[in-house]
Design a protein around this nucleic acid. Structure first.
Lengths: 158, 158
DNA sequence: GTTGCGGTTCAAGTCGACTTGAGGTCAGGC
DNA sequence: GCCTGACCTCAAGTCGACTTGAACCGCAAC
């Protein structure tokens, strides 16, 4: 099995070394040992990181994800939880779709002010009802350029 | 026009009084004056709050939303920005859909470990590539704040 | 054999959107 | 005329997921 140092894992996974340390701290991943001071990872950690990324994308928190790995390290994913999350995602998708349609309408609507457009007003009340905050939407484009400085140790983005 | 006190606005908008004060602080909404110490809002603030909710649902930050109101208070929404946001939403929806499908597959897949399933592994790499963190997904179930109904807490709990 | 770069630790900071707490004020009721 | 209590202000705290900073260590190169 290939042994990787943290930089390599960062490079291949796209996650900054600081994140990897953080994940190790949280028990989400584990290093197989040390070479001097330095962590050594087994290549399988990449798979694990992919799993974590999937979980994050699905809306699980890191803590929830941690629970999906048995203490021995192998993924012990409850299919029911997965299905429930999928349903949740469905709801989110539906809402986002509605908002998107509303946005598109507003972008195209000829009314002088959106507030005067009945369609827009309808969308408005819909948004007001279930809105909360389901939209992530960003983080897609940004995430490399944080305000206040560059990243000294993040690998060359993905 | 009806004058509302903060509690009433909270009741009707679903936003806690603390949030309304916060929004006023940020310049997102404005009170028309004071009755003694107490803020007085014009009923039109409800529309504004709905607009804000829509913006939040679409993934705009409060600061971005603030920029969509001209200094004079009337919404000055750039249709191009709206369309761009809609496109962004489309991307998010697509990603979320993929993740949802992955989740559903994992929930149904008979492989002893998900890692042994080629379909799952494919999903994994997909999630790993574009994942970052686009999923909000929660906030949907918690933070129950029904519009048609009434406030769980906020206004009086202050 | 010393320099230096890349890794390490741990604590603290950041970001966004609020919430909470302490302490203060004023309108209305008795 | 005093009490009550809803509302006020301002500062600080919270939450999740990281990032950053300071101080330190070791292997490889020179």
């Amino acid at each position: 099995m290939a042994e990787l140092d943290i930089t390599e894992v960062a490079l291949r996974s796209g996650a900054p070394a600081s994140t990897l340390r953080y994940y190790e701290d949280k028990g989400l991943i584990a290093s197989t040992g040390r070479r001097g001071l330095k962590r050594v990872f087994d290549a399988s950690v990449l798979e694990r990181l992919a799993l974590i990324a999937l979980g994050r994308a699905a809306g699980f928190s890191l803590d929830e994800i941690a629970l999906m790995f048995a203490p021995d390290g192998r993924p012990r994913i409850d299919r029911g939880v997965l299905a429930a999350k999928a349903d949740e995602l469905d709801a989110t998708i539906a809402k986002l779709t509605a908002v998107r349609d509303g946005l598109r309408h507003a972008a195209a609507c000829p009314a002088p002010s959106h507030l005067e457009c009945p369609t827009f007003r309808r969308i408005l009340s819909a948004a007001a009802s279930g809105a909360e905050r389901k939209a992530p939407a960003k983080e897609l484009t940004r995430r490399v350029n944080r305000p206040g400085g560059h990243k000294p140790e993040s690998p060359g983005a993905d």
